[in-house]
Design a protein around this nucleic acid. Sequence first.
DNA 1: CTCCTAGTTTATAATAATTCTAAAGTAAAA
DNA 2: TTTTACTTTAGAATTATTATAAACTAGGAG
Lengths: 135, 135
Amino acid sequence: MKKIDIFKKLRSSGLRPTKQRVEIAKFLFERDKTFHFTIESLDKLLAKKTTSRFALATIYNTVHAFKKAGHLSEVDVRGKKTYFDTNISNHHHFYDNETSELIDIDASEVVIQKIPKAPNGKKIKNVEVFINLKN
Amino acid sequence: MKKIDIFKKLRSSGLRPTKQRVEIAKFLFERDKTFHFTIESLDKLLAKKTTSRFALATIYNTVHAFKKAGHLSEVDVRGKKTYFDTNISNHHHFYDNETSELIDIDASEVVIQKIPKAPNGKKIKNVEVFINLKN
DNA sequence: CTCCTAGTTTATAATAATTCTAAAGTAAAA
DNA sequence: TTTTACTTTAGAATTATTATAAACTAGGAG
Ligand SMILES: [Mn+2]
Ligand SMILES: [Mn+2]
Ligand SMILES: [Zn+2]
Ligand SMILES: [Zn+2]
């Protein structure tokens, strides 16, 4: 993803392409594979991989802005920290409890044959499959 | 579940049947249907439904002791609070985002036809299906 | 029973993750 | 170039949870 595309992505989301947002967007979106992270891990990686400095609040702000704009999704993981995901398509996860690592599972890799109908007046928004791993 | 059974349940878990534990166990386990809760909701309900007083730390301690003993399970729900579940069998959930309510799905209600194999050197511990609801 | 002790409860402090605040800085419209 | 709304920032505040240590108690030994 080129700089111009980062700018487009931000602009089209109503986000000014500030130095911080562009740097964080480049770090998050200029990759081939899905990236799963917590604010803490992102903070550390940005400190290591970039020369810019980011206030922690800016990282929170930016990640939430990206999530709100639909460029990031959130994954439910047991524990206290919130996990984010650059894969915004409908997909599932392995979770390795030993390493606290998430691994993507493409939606096509999971076929559900039977599922209960939603309770009265409710509809199914989406189905998440979470596969816990052990050694 | 009678008082004698509550005592047995506690004793067999190596937990002294104290006034607080017995009260909380009665509240949690003397019911027909699954009960899903957070520490905060349990605290409020205990305050309303019982005459005893419980320090918040005692509720945390007791719930964790019950979980460790296998009498409660924990459910991954998006958000900051930890959810607990009196249903300790393998099962799945609907989650109603409007009301923040969990609804049990019996394991037999979900049939998965296809699932990817675990990554190298890892095994599948369990599969959790989480169905988000909308109105 | 009475005493003893390990286990338990409790109020409070500490910690960890996240959000809020308000002042200073900046992108971009006018 | 000026203005303005948006953004960043450091630090304070909040929320959920865990740790601490003093007071209390269940239950066994004597
Ligand atoms: Mn979580
Ligand atoms: Mn959670
Ligand atoms: Zn993912
Ligand atoms: Zn349940």
